[in-house]
Design a binder for these strands. Structure first.
Lengths: 218, 218
DNA sequence: TTTCATAGTGTAGGTATTACGATAAGTAAA
DNA sequence: TTTACTTATCGTAATACCTACACTATGAAA
């Protein structure tokens, strides 16, 4: 079919953007970069990158984190969110379709890597953003919440060992509402994804808490 | 950043494929085309198309239905499923990333358009398929089921006016398991998305059924 | 008027979810 | 060493939700 001769028409640009979440200071944060080129020069934006010809798309996402945000992508859990390609004028340079991933990372693993081109911002106080990235972040938050409610997602944000109270705090930050302590523990323990370590966390003048780790499937 | 000079590297191909569902003969069907070019010449495949430079991606999906399947896309409800772009060798011609949509259509609206290049196949007896389309269809089915359970999705497969029994049949075909009549009716009526018409469907030697239509939001 | 086929309806039992407050185990201060 | 303080841990009762289940209603056809 001539109709489909792929060499005869101009291909749209294909990019990947990453909405990277972490929890810091009891707040849900998203990682943003400052753009160093047009369009939206100087504005905040999601770390992103054009997909190279020989690059699997998740690899593009990881490279964006590494090169644009200075983050070691090995510590980042990624999941594909949605592909935005309805608006023809999203990017002023060429027509671009962007595959958006969202990622979760334990902030302690990348503490050092805060730089002048990459910053964490509270999702509740977002700065002005380039492109349609604000809308994308809102969407990512709603998907994140849904996932957290119906799966074991939040572990990706936790350190190796954690207490139930710490885990509950993470859920509260993500869902942006308080959780009942007893019901929360009951629910999580029934999921059978927590493995109690025979250790306790001694900290402060109070009863020490049991430490758990995430029970990996398999 | 030179790194990102989008004109300096080769862009991957970007395509859209559509998993189009309908219900026919009490069976869940997916629409497949026969490929008329390499790769997979002569094999069955999902209707698809490369994204043109000035084409919103959902428009690409509709054009694929129109040109490859001979279906009037105005009657088709579409939702984006997932973007496949991990495998570099999916397509043997060029490296291709494909955005997959799934669609629902009331088969009565397109009855005529069954042609020699387009056919409906039971999702439970799929022929051999080109590319990774089998995997994609499986995934689309699981998403479809999930959506049907938690929303009012199935209406897209129904004609304008329908009885509760007909609607239940559609659910049963999609979920592939029988539904309890009373619980089904209770659930659907509680959703407040059904508008009873003051008509009855007279058909056969038995009590006639109440006709309903989908109550559009807003 | 009887038969046949599908339409239409309610309730009880079990399961899951929610709301809620008292005791336990450490540290620090008196 | 005793007491105060802080957070950890635990169970139950009330409610909402889901599931299973069987009979009566209404029309057409015989």
């Amino acid at each position: 079919m001539k109709e489909d001769d792929i060499h005869k028409f101009n291909r749209p640009g294909l990019a990947v953007d990453v909405v990277l979440f972490t929890i810091k200071n009891n707040d849900l944060k998203v990682g943003l970069v400052r753009r160093e080129e047009e369009p939206y020069f100087g504005k905040h934006a999601l770390p992103g990158r054009f997909v190279r010809y020989d690059e699997p798309i998740e690899e593009t996402a990881r490279m964006a984190l590494k090169l644009k945000a200075g983050i070691n992508p090995n510590f980042v859990f990624l999941e594909q969110l949605y592909t935005f390609g309805q608006e023809l004028k999203r990017d002023t340079r060429i027509r671009t379709v962007t595959i958006v991933y969202y990622g979760l990372v334990d902030s302690s693993k990348i503490e050092l890597q805060d730089s002048d081109k990459f910053h964490w911002h509270s999702v509740y106080e977002l700065p002005e953003l380039g492109f349609d990235h604000k809308k994308i972040i809102e969407y990512a938050i709603s998907r994140l919440r849904k996932k957290v409610i119906e799966s074991d997602f939040a572990f990706q944000l936790m350190p190796e060992e954690f207490t139930l109270t710490e885990l509950q705090k993470a859920y509260e930050v993500i869902l942006h509402e308080p959780q009942d302590k007893r019901n929360f523990r009951k629910k999580l323990l029934e999921m059978k994804i927590l493995k109690p370590l025979k250790k306790k966390k001694m900290e402060g003048a109070h009863r020490p808490a049991e430490l758990y780790e995430f029970r990996r499937k398999g």
